[in-house]
């Protein structure tokens, strides 16, 4: 029973924080509202005995949101929310779309005849996940790894302005890179 109350509370918190993301003026607050939503979901996962995934969700999403905060403040007109303004288009249509998707999903969720629970819960969900990643589902992990690597390269290429020709000269023959601020390595 205590678990039920906790899950419902966390669920409402997650949704409320999710709504707050698009309601608050301040970009910093929007970012951290989203983080609160993620942490609430991590709390529910914890209640579902998915300890590792819950903690990893909290870990990854915190780092993502900290980085997100920088971008929000860099690119938004009103980072601290000192001058209230709205930056939405087609709010009514979007609200209708969001509400109808929620309604359709909810109707489905409560009318579908869900199958019974298959099998029993393992002693250790973390071990189950680890063994499948390194065993039966290794292909998924390999694809994820390659995808992440491609993302790192593509992201860096898109985001940086200065390439090696800017750093090492047109002939690439400079011994030390020409950077506005020198790094800590003697190269």
């Amino acid at each position: 029973m205590a678990g039920d109350i906790a899950v419902v509370t966390l669920g409402m918190l997650a949704v409320a924080a999710g709504i707050a993301v698009f309601v608050v003026d301040s970009m910093a607050r929007a970012t951290f509202a989203l983080l609160a939503s993620f942490l609430a979901v991590a709390g529910i996962l914890l209640a579902l005995d998915l300890v590792y995934l819950a903690v990893v969700t909290a870990l990854m999403m915190t780092m993502e949101m900290a980085v997100m905060a920088i971008f929000m403040i860099m690119f938004m007109m009103n980072p601290a929310g000192l001058m209230p303004m709205t930056m939405v288009h087609n709010a009514r249509g979007s609200a209708v779309a969001g509400a109808s998707v929620f309604t359709v999903l909810t109707v489905g969720i409560w009318t579908i005849d869900w199958p019974a629970r298959q099998g029993t819960q393992p002693d250790d969900a973390t071990r189950q996940l680890g063994e499948s990643i390194m065993g039966g589902h290794m292909l998924v992990m390999l694809v994820i790894g390659i995808g992440l690597f491609a993302t790192i390269i593509a992201g860096t290429v898109l985001a940086t302005q200065r390439g090696r020709y800017d750093r090492f000269g047109p002939e690439l023959d400079a011994r030390r890179p020409h950077d506005p601020v020198a790094g800590g390595l003697p190269r």
Partner: peptide
């Protein structure tokens, strides 16, 4: 059903944000 309803609500709110926000970063948050 309860947990899935919460998930559906999150998806609905996220969809609203994605469709309505003007800023690219806010779209990503949706």
């Amino acid at each position: 059903q309860i947990v899935l309803t919460v998930a559906a609500a999150l998806i609905g709110v996220g969809l609203f944000g994605t469709l309505s926000q003007q800023s690219i970063v806010m779209v990503m948050m949706g």
